[in-house]
Computed example of a mutant assay.
Amino acid sequence: MSKPMIAVLPLYDKAKESYWMLPGYMKGIEEAGGIPVIMSLTADEEDILAIAENFDGFLFTGGQDVNPNLYGEKNENYCDEICEKRDFMEGILFHHVLRLNKPAFGICRGLQLFNVLLGGTLYQDIAAQRPGENQLEHKQTVSYDQAVHHVYIQKDSTFYNIMKKEVIMVNSLHHQGIKHLADVLVPGAKSEDDLIEAVYMPGKNFVLAVQWHPEFNYHIDENSAKLFLEFVKSSELSLKITKPVSKI
């Protein structure tokens, strides 16, 4: 049986004007049975459509902050670097993927991007905009493969169907998070300080995103491995769809 081809959105170094990639994104897909392919950032809308039509699954990676203009806010001083090239391409691609009902897996920025593109908003900086006695430190300083806090999984959710448990430990490497959740998304898990840490879109083959980073510990954490496995499994369904002839 053919393996699903997974489009992986690139990480981007503005200073060097270069694409780069963490091996965990690629190896997580490979070990789950898929073939990962790193995309280029293009503004050609026909090419973006061709990518959507010809790949079986789509991994939206971490990286720069989503431009606050996309959710109706000005860029505050505590918003970090943005990447307009990523915002543009990923926005168009995501909506094509939804229309084609193909799997989309978001990690960190990917979760935030899904929420914004579907009408939600973000905390531009959690520490600055969401202070409180019980506030967690969401940007860990220990090794990235180490879990540092709990997330509590919604019992009657797609996320629970994947994990088969109500509490898991995760790593944490973000300074932004979901403020107002998009109406079409459902929370799958929340942190100890009640920040939404996982979302999914009901009625779709697989539209799911997490705030933590399974690419750093999929090889030692069964919960992270499950996410890649379920994503690739869902992408295999796209192999049964007759793909239109299109340039890529």
Rank of each mutant, 00 (worst) to 15 (best):
H174R: 01
G120D: 08
N171F: 10
G57Q: 08
L173E: 06
M89R: 07
V151F: 06
R86G: 00
V170I: 15
A128M: 13
E73T: 09
K155H: 14
E81S: 12
G110T: 02
K164G: 04
I162A: 08
V170D: 03
N171M: 10
N171S: 11
E81R: 10
H149F: 08
Y160S: 12
A147K: 11
D87C: 11
G119P: 01
K164L: 08
E137P: 00
P103Q: 12
E84F: 01
N75F: 10
N101E: 11
P68A: 09
S143L: 07
E133K: 14
Y123C: 08
A50M: 06
F114R: 00
S157L: 05
V151H: 05
N115F: 06
C83W: 01
A50E: 08
L111A: 04
T158C: 10
L113Q: 06
G57M: 10
V142Q: 09
G62Q: 03
K165V: 09
Q64R: 02
A147M: 10
E76L: 14
T158K: 11
P68Y: 02
F94Q: 02
F55K: 12
K165F: 02
M169Q: 14
D145E: 12
I107L: 03
M163E: 13
V97M: 03
D145T: 04
T141K: 15
I92H: 09
Y123S: 07
K74C: 03
Y78H: 15
A127C: 08
H174A: 01
N69T: 10
L181H: 12
R86T: 01
N75C: 13
Q64P: 07
Y78N: 11
R130I: 01
Y71P: 11
I178G: 02
F105V: 07
Y144W: 09
G119V: 02
N134I: 03
N134C: 04
L118K: 00
H175K: 13
F60T: 00
Q154H: 10
T158H: 14
E90N: 13
L70N: 13
N69M: 14
G106A: 07
L136W: 05
H138D: 05
L100W: 08
R109G: 00
M89Q: 12
D80L: 13
Q129D: 13
A127T: 11
E137H: 14
Y71A: 13
Q135N: 09
Q140K: 08
F94A: 09
F60S: 06
P131R: 12
M89G: 04
D56P: 12
D125G: 04
I168C: 01
N77C: 04
F58A: 13
L118P: 00
L70T: 11
Y152A: 01
H175A: 07
D87M: 11
I51H: 09
N161Q: 15
V151W: 07
P68E: 06
P103H: 13
E84C: 01
K165E: 15
F55W: 10
A52P: 05
P131K: 13
L118T: 03
L122V: 06
A128S: 14
N134Y: 15
V148T: 14
V148Y: 07
H95E: 14
P103T: 12
N69K: 15
T121L: 06
V116T: 01
G57I: 10
F105C: 07
I51K: 10
K85A: 09
L59Q: 10
L181C: 13
H180G: 02
Q146P: 00
N134Q: 12
A104N: 01
D156F: 05
F94C: 04
Q129E: 15
H180R: 11
H95N: 15
F105H: 04
F94P: 00
K165P: 02
I162E: 03
